[in-house]
Amino acid sequence: MKTLLKGIEISHIASSLPSKVLKFDDLKDLFGDKEVDKVMKTTGINSVHIAADDTTSSDLCFYAAKKILDSLDTTDDIDGLIFVSQTRDHVLPQSSHILQAKLGLSQDTYCLDMPLGCSGYIYGLMQASLLISTGACNKVLVLAGDTTSKLVNEQDRASRLVFGDAGSATLLQKGNDGMYFDLRADGSGKDSLIVPSGGFRNPSNSKTSITKPAEEGCSRSQDDLFMDGMSVFNFAITKVPKLLKETLLELNWTLESLDAMVLHQANKFMVDYLRRKMKLPLEMVPIEVKNYGNTGPASIPLAITSKYSIDKPKLNNVLLAGFGVGLSWGACNCNLQNTIIFEPEIFNKL
């Protein structure tokens, strides 16, 4: 799906991280010194933030959203809330409804949960832009976050040394920018990133929760997240560069006219690989994974807030791209020149 939506601007971006930090050095007893060092060197991830048992993705997103709302004169004109997450508070109701009430937003607010992962931020921005450009909404909050650590088996080295938790908030409103979106899907790759049990196809039971040895160095149950790293890497390196090149072409942008390209922060190896493939210099493609890991749908706004909140370069022509579970992938442009970008905040208990 490709579309150009007009009359939008991104006014604010904020992010939040749970206070607890998991240092990968502390996992060496469990997974071995050599293995952990090697993974850290390749992925560029040294530690991740982990949500407490009683902290959910919606809490992290609420905290980031409050940062934005507290800076506004009024929140009465916010009439859309999109919550992008695969770790919702409940099976039902939607977490976006819970967040609408908790944030004190009007009952005229359109609320929607989007259970998406690493491509989710782009999908969320598209949904918000669509609501604004059609005139249905004035201002829309996109809250994207996950507590993926809660889906990962403690003995699964492959996932535990990659995923971290974070929340984010992005406010979109009527403006003068156009945003071009290209969103793609290939559900035949559903098994590459999956929690096999726990839905209605394979409900959880006493058997699905048993941890069993999987690939070397990894054990997990059917209730845990499984990631086939090789398949996902293959998917990303074949699909994403093509998507980025076609998006640039549609936008009539050259590599020289681009100010920054912010990709889903899967890990350093992946982001750097895509950067080299696009022939872009290091300084144009942020890699913000060292202390955060892969934070799923929050990774793009977290990278933006981490990289550009203090030292903001020219950011008129920014390209964003997400890719992952589904499989799904998507890209869009945005103008962050006048966007208020807050520093990532450490979440304090509500």
């Binding site: 293995e35 090697k38 993974v39 390749t42 492959a158 690939e215 070397e216 790293g229 090789m230 890497f233 293959n234 390196i237 074949t238 190896f269 690989y273």
Partner: peptide, 13 residues
């Protein structure tokens, strides 16, 4: 290991 495997996929690409 699996990290080298990713590098091989990248190299072949």
């Amino acid at each position: 290991d699996s990290m080298i495997a990713l590098s091989i996929i990248g190299m072949v690409d």
